[in-house]
Design a protein around this nucleic acid. Structure first.
Length: 587
RNA sequence: CGGGGUGUAGCUUAGCCUGGUAGAGCGCUACGUUCGGGACGUAGAGGCCGAGAGUUCAAAUCUCUCCACCCCGACCA
């Protein structure tokens, strides 16, 4: 139990101008955190307590699932990362450090980096100490601070440059084993979020820069989330928009037959899909092929979409480039010989540049059948372009952004899209890191094989804020019992009255004995201030001791989330408090 | 990195357009009256008005440069 006067809970009546969203305001107002600088926060006692509770629940679920806790360094030799498979892709989000002393010039290339995640550390570790199938599978995790130089930190802990994450890595002998490990983690995550009082859903996800092929994210639905989740209530389909597909292209679609010979026509001054759709050309966006130029690992490649569709850039990750970006106007001209607006991939019009790494068309362009595209000559387009006959395509794939209302790929019913906060991510990595770092083992047949890895993250500090975002009202936080910094607050209205403090202490002792963390508000403040603060910091159960009630031989019990107040005779205190705590922890 | 916005006391802010000795509320200190849902009165403390340069007799205010923070996009737990 803790006396309020002896700890540090600096509550605020007004929220600092920095804070935009409810959870961020409450983090500051309830005295959970203070900002040092953008995306970097101090956890005050109350915030730290919540983090510790969330961490402990996480630890229990990880241990239950058979994972093994370790603690890896936060500062890594940059060479370790250079040896890994993604240095080029992630180095810009990593903070770097140097050991150069005062007056010495740090080397041009970083000597050390602050860890954004730990594949590059855990894989060599395992490679050094595990070499037999008898020692597999193994799953290592840690709960530790991560550093990422986010381009734009925001919303307090939601996207921070320094944050606390649980990261775990599984090592298996084969794919089947990795899938077992993966499902164990998925189950553990589901239990973890449920115990934290969070309504989180798991959705199919893109694997990002990590690479890999089997991936789910845990999402907390919230208007302020950074991610779009595409879902279907009918079939249960749910996916991150970066990964989501829709059923607009029937699997049995037959390519349309040509309707006539290719024909070039002049389109002076028309440089956009919308422009071509207007007078005098009147080519609807649905009948236009859109050609985009990207640079992947230094080489240009092309993406073809329907005129009306948007590229989902994350889906280009499946093409295997380490880094890619849109081409500049100069690069486009160098590649295709024409400016944006007159680009196309019709055979015979691609003779300008060389070294195109590939032409990737979205499946949906097949729906066009016969349409219009640029002639790779400024101010000219081609009509009667037949997909099968005329378009040069390396391969078809899913590259378009799904739109709300399109048919669900499973049920065919209209898809919905909602915002969400990503709080966890599980995925199978395969052997990518194992091969790079020689994490191999000898199997029962004496064959040396690479381990199959999985990796699993939970944003602990982000989860803290997601709970607040999901559990609050106009007066403050509504902590779920399991993650509340204190489950019970004993509000003493007359702390100078010895009988009042005596009873408060007795109530606190009973609540503690029943398994609750108790905060005693013994401050010399007016009752209104204490009630407002108790609501603001969101303690689930409030026991109020005041001179008035004391005269009648009662104290009061009130749940943060319910309107009523229960008057409890002092004589029943111990038993009633124990029962209330039991009730709270069961909820 | 592109686009937008804001920097005035610990917090929320007025003043800026139209230059002329920096104001309020909350919080803080002291005293008094209060005391069951953020009390009231009186008296105080607290500001190189983000930094630098410029224009001017005079700059929080006008101009330029820089910095920081917030919001929108690409990245991510």
């Amino acid at each position: 139990m803790q006396n309020w006067s002896q700890t540090f809970i600096p509550t605020l009546k007004e929220s600092p101008a920095d804070a935009e969203i409810a959870s961020h305001k409450l983090l500051l107002r309830a005295g959970l955190v203070r900002k040092l600088t953008g995306g970097i926060y101090t956890y005050l006692p109350l915030g730290l307590k919540v983090m510790q509770k969330i961490s402990q629940i996480c630890r229990e679920e990880m241990n239950r699932a058979g994972a093994i806790e370790v603690l890896m360094p936060q500062i890594h030799p940059a060479d370790t990362w250079r040896q890994g498979p993604r240095w080029a892709a992630v180095r810009e989000v990593m903070f770097s450090a140097s050991s150069a002393g005062a007056g010495q010039r740090p080397p041009a290339e970083p000597e050390f980096v602050l860890g954004p995640t730990h594949e590059e550390v855990v894989t060599p570790l395992v490679a050094g100490d595990i070499s037999s199938y008898r020692d597999l599978p193994r799953n290592f995790y840690q709960i530790a601070t991560k550093f990422r130089n986010e381009i734009r930190p925001r919303y307090g802990l939601m996207r921070a440059r320094e944050f606390v994450m649980k990261d775990g890595y599984s090592f298996d002998v084969d794919d089947a084993g990795a899938i077992v490990s993966y499902h164990k983690m998925r189950e553990a995550y589901t239990r973890f979020f449920a115990r934290c009082g969070l309504k989180a859903i798991s959705v199919e996800a893109d694997t990002g820069v990590m690479g890999g092929d089997y991936s789910h994210e845990f999402m907390v639905p919230a208007e302020v989330g950074d991610d779009d989740v595409v879902y279907c209530e009918g079939s249960g389909y749910a996916a991150n928009r970066e990964k989501a597909t829709s059923g607009i292209v029937p699997p049995d679609l037959v390519d349309a037959a040509p309707v006539g010979a290719l024909e070039e026509f002049a389109t002076p001054g028309v440089t956009t899909i919308a422009g071509l759709a207007r007078e005098p050309h009147n080519v609807p966006a649905t009948a236009q092929f859109k050609t985009l130029v990207y640079i992947g690992d230094g080489k240009p490649f092309l993406v073809v979409l329907r005129g009306e569709d948007q590229l989902e850039e994350a889906k280009l990750g499946s093409l295997g480039f380490t880094v890619f970006r849109p081409a500049t106007p100069e690069e486009i001209v160098a590649t295709l010989g024409a400016k944006p607006g007159s680009l196309g991939t019709v055979r015979g019009t691609l003779n300008h540049g060389t070294g195109v790494a590939g032409i990737y068309a979205d499946h949906a362009v097949r729906l066009i059948g016969n349409g219009v595209t640029g002639a790779n000559r400024d101010g000219f387009h081609l009509r009667n372009v037949n997909v099968a006959r005329d378009l040069q395509v390396t391969s078809f794939g899913d590259f378009r952004k799904v739109r709300e209302g399109e048919p669900c790929p499973k049920s065919g019913k209209p898809l919905k899209i909602g915002r969400a906060i990503e709080v966890g991510h599980v995925f199978i990595l395969g052997t990518k890191y194992a091969e790079k770092f020689n994490a191999t083992f000898t199997d029962a047949e004496k064959q040396v094989r690479p381990m199959v890895m999985g990796c699993y993250g939970i944003g602990i500090s982000r989860t803290l804020q997601a709970v607040i975002e999901q559990c609050h009202d106009n007066d403050g936080v509504l902590w779920p019992w399991n993650v509340a910094p204190y489950q019970v607050i004993v509000t003493v209205l007359d702390p100078k009255m010895p009988e009042a403090m005596e009873l408060a202490l007795a109530l606190a002792t009973s609540a503690t004995a029943a398994g609750a963390d108790v905060l005693i508000d013994d401050r010399d403040e007016r009752p209104g201030v204490k009630f407002k603060d108790a609501d603001l910091i969101g303690i689930p159960l409030r026991l109020t001791v005041g001179g008035k009630g004391l005269k009648d031989g009662v104290f009061e019990a009130k749940w943060r989330t319910a309107p009523g107040v229960e008057r409890v005779p002092v004589a029943d205190a111990a038993a009633r408090v124990a029962a209330l705590v039991k009730q709270g922890s069961a909820a």
